[in-house]
Design a protein around this nucleic acid. Structure first.
Lengths: 211, 211
DNA sequence: TACGAATTGGGCCGCACGACCTATGTAGCC
DNA sequence: GGCTACATAGGTCGTGCGGCCCAATTCGTA
C-alpha cells in the first residue's frame, strides 16, 4: 500500500467542500486543506504542496482557471482537477491551457471524482480532457483563444451587478463610449450579441459571480 | 434510540447528491431516495413518504419551490428543507409560502444541514426562516407576493437561451408586443429594469435554468 | 353572475444599445 | 525602433428596448 494521495479542495460552497471531504477521506484520500476562494487556493497550494488539487471554476477573488494558471506557473508538476457546473467547451479549453490535468462536471458521480483524481496522479487524462485536447489540436474549437481582459471582466461584473452603461462608466471613471467598446469586444469573444447573453456566458464560464 | 430519520434528497447535481448521501448516512440518517429533478422529487415524495426532504431550488422540469408546493398540497405534514446557492429574500419568502420547513444556503456547514433536518422534524424552524416569517408578518418584504406566471417563465427561459424579442415572439406564436408586455410585468415583479437583470434574478431564484 | 387575473394585442415616445469605422496613448516585447 | 495588444474616446446610424397609455378575450372563482 502506497502513501495516501494528499488532496487540496477548493470550492466556495462549504456544504460541497465538507461533504466531499468526508467522502474523499472515506475513500482513503488525505484531505490536507480546504480553500474557499481562488487566492486561498493559490496560497495553500504553495504552502501544503498537495498531490492533487480539486478546484471549482466559479470562485470569488480569483476564478479557478486563473488560480490554476498561477499554481502551474509556480509548480509545473502540480496536478489540478477542475470542477464546474456546466460542460462548457470554452471553459474546458481554458482549463487545459491553464494547465489542468483533469476536468469534471458537477453532475458526475463520486466514483468518477475519485477515479479522475487517481488518473491525475498517474498522468492519465480524462476522456473529456483528451477529447478537448484533440479538438484543440484539430483547431476546431480554438476560438476560445479569445482571452477576456481584466478590464472587460470588470465591465461584465458591474453589468451583472445591475449597472447600466452610464453607471459602469461612472464606476470605472471612463466614458460611456469606452464601456461600449469593451462590450463590443466582449461580444466578439464570448460569441454573444447583447449584454444579457454576454453576462450569462460569463456566469457559465465562472468569469463573473452572481450575488 | 429512536428510528433513523428517513430522508429524500433532491438535487440535480449528482456529485452533491452522492457526497451528501454518504455524509448523511454517516450521521445516522436513512437516505431512502434520490431525485435529480423536481418532478422526480414529487413522485418519490409520494411513493416513499420520507420524514424530511432536502430539496434544491434550482432543478430541471419543476423548480424546487413549485415541487414543494405540490408535495405540501398532497401531504400538508411533509417536512421540506430547501437548499439554494444564494440567500435571496424573495426565494426564502416563496419557499415559506410554498410550505417549506427550513432553508439552507449551500455555503453552510454540514453540521447545519444535519441540525436543520432534525429541527424540521421536531417542528422548529431555522433562524433564517423565522426571520423571514417575521419580516413577512411585518409586511416589510412581502413584495415577493408577485408570483411569476407560467407564460412569464417561458419568456424568461427563452431570453436566457439567447432569444431576442422577435425570436421569443416567434417561438411562442405571439406578437412582439405581447412579449414586451410580459417583460414589463416581469420587471415589476422581479424589481429589474432590463432583461439582463430580470434573467439574472430569475437564475438566482431558480426560476430559469442556465444550460 | 360578476370580479379579478392572465394572456393577448395596439400605439406612441424617447433613449439606450449594438454595428461599424477611425484614432491616440501606453505598455510590453522581440 | 517597430510590433502588437490594451485601454481610451469620438462619430453615425438604425433599431431594439422600456415606459406609459389603453382594450379584448378567456378563465377560475368568489
Amino acid at each position: 500500500m502506497t502513501d495516501p494521495i494528499r488532496l487540496l479542495l477548493a470550492d466556495d460552497h462549504r456544504m460541497l467542500r465538507e461533504t466531499l471531504k468526508r467522502s474523499m477521506l472515506d475513500e482513503g484520500f488525505d484531505v490536507v486543506g480546504e480553500a474557499s476562494d481562488g487566492q486561498e487556493a493559490v496560497d495553500l497550494a504553495e504552502e501544503l504542496q498537495p498531490d492533487v488539487i480539486l478546484m471549482d471554476v466559479t470562485m470569488p477573488e480569483i476564478d479557478g482557471v486563473e488560480a490554476t494558471r498561477r499554481i502551474v506557473e509556480q509548480r509545473p508538476d502540480a496536478r489540478i482537477v477542475m470542477l464546474t457546473m456546466h460542460a462548457d467547451q470554452d471553459v474546458i479549453a481554458a482549463a487545459i491551457r491553464a494547465g489542468a490535468s483533469g476536468y469534471l462536471v458537477k453532475d458526475c458521480s463520486f466514483d468518477e471524482v475519485a477515479a479522475t483524481v487517481r488518473e491525475a496522479i498517474s498522468g492519465e487524462v480524462s476522456q473529456q480532457v483528451a477529447a478537448s485536447m484533440l479538438r484543440e489540436a484539430k483547431g476546431l474549437a480554438d476560438d476560445a483563444e479569445s482571452v477576456i481582459t481584466k478590464r472587460e471582466i470588470e465591465v461584465l461584473q458591474l453589468i451583472a451587478d445591475g449597472c447600466a452603461t452610464p453607471e459602469v462608466a461612472e464606476q470605472l471613471f471612463i466614458s460611456q463610449k469606452t464601456v461600449k467598446n469593451h462590450l463590443a469586444s466582449i461580444y466578439a469573444k464570448l460569441d454573444a450579441r447583447d449584454r444579457t447573453q454576454a453576462v450569462l456566458q460569463a456566469v457559465r464560464m465562472g468569469i463573473v459571480r452572481l450575488y
